[in-house]
Simulated assay, not measured.
Amino acid sequence: MSLALAEILDEAAAGRFPAPDGTTTVVPQPNPRDAGVLAFTAHSVVFTDEDPDWVRSTLAAIDCDALAATMNPRFLVALLDRTGRTHDTTDLLTVAEALPGQPALELREIEDPDHPRVRRARARRDGVRVWATPTGGGVVILGRGVAGRWETAVEVDEAARHRGLGRELARAARHLVPDGSPLWSQQSTGNTRSIRAFQAAGYRPVGAEALMLAPAPQDRAVAPA
């Protein structure tokens, strides 16, 4: 019996990955909001409510190395077209263990933020909480994302960059997870500054993720058969 997406993520967080056998696992979406593709070493996971036979036949028709088929633009576009979803970028998926105690960085929680990164987080995560450095310069965001996992993101103002604040915020987030669960974060593969900051804060790369975003209600259309 195949694992649900949440179980696959829990296993990956513990360093236990799907077998590197070149295959693709197809699992149902954990909820209507979240669909997409995860690529681990020589194994991919497609989480969608679309017909698994359609997924496999579409992958088989992609003219590329089978190991790369799930992240090939042709497959991603086919999945987007079929579901009516949108996609921003393919991210590096990273994870870190929670840390005990309070963060060393001084932070204050914001009750009603209007930061663009915060509004974006609320569209993709549940139970979003936000903290900022008291004198400004950076924010750290925490919420439940794909399959209920805890996710974090940080934002550093341009004037406060190149001082290690991104790394400090990413590490502080590890102290803020309320139940001690693993903490996940995605970094765009081209954003090397963010990748370096998160890895310096103890986040380990585990794979790649292409998240498919559900359309707004007014934009939803019937998916092609």
Rank of each mutant, 00 (worst) to 15 (best):
E151K: 00
R204E: 12
A6K: 14
L9G: 14
L79C: 05
V55A: 07
D157Y: 09
Q102S: 15
W184G: 05
P215H: 10
D81T: 04
Q218F: 11
A159S: 09
L9P: 12
R196S: 11
N31A: 14
L165E: 13
D157N: 13
E109N: 07
I141E: 00
I141Q: 02
V27Q: 05
A201R: 07
A170R: 00
D51E: 10
A153Y: 01
G22V: 00
V37E: 04
Q199Y: 04
A42G: 01
P205C: 09
R193M: 00
A160D: 15
Q186E: 11
G202M: 05
R163Q: 13
D179A: 10
R161S: 11
D21L: 09
F17Q: 10
D21T: 04
A14F: 02
P205L: 09
G143W: 03
L59S: 03
P217H: 09
E158N: 04
A12G: 10
L9E: 13
V156I: 02
R74P: 03
T23L: 07
A4I: 10
E168S: 10
A223L: 14
S194N: 01
L38G: 06
L38W: 11
P30K: 14
P215S: 07
S194I: 07
R193Y: 06
Q102N: 12
R149P: 05
T70D: 02
L105S: 04
A35F: 07
P224V: 03
A123I: 05
A12R: 09
P113Q: 02
Q29R: 15
F198L: 13
D65G: 05
D49L: 11
A66V: 14
I62F: 03
H162A: 14
R119D: 08
D51M: 08
A173I: 00
T70E: 05
R171E: 15
V140I: 13
R120I: 14
R82K: 15
V177P: 08
L99C: 05
G138A: 03
V118A: 13
E97V: 00
A14N: 06
G101Q: 03
H87P: 09
A132R: 11
A223Q: 13
P32I: 07
A14W: 02
R163Y: 01
D21M: 01
T83Q: 15
L92N: 07
A153V: 01
S57C: 01
I110A: 00
T25V: 13
I141H: 05
D63H: 08
R117F: 04
L3Y: 14
A35M: 12
L3S: 15
G84S: 03
D34M: 11
S194C: 01
L211I: 14
D63E: 15
A4C: 12
W131P: 00
P182Q: 03
L169H: 07
I8S: 08
T152Q: 13
A210H: 03
L9Y: 12
A197P: 08
A225N: 15
P182F: 01
N72P: 06
L105M: 08
R56Q: 14
R74H: 13
G148Q: 05
L169Q: 02
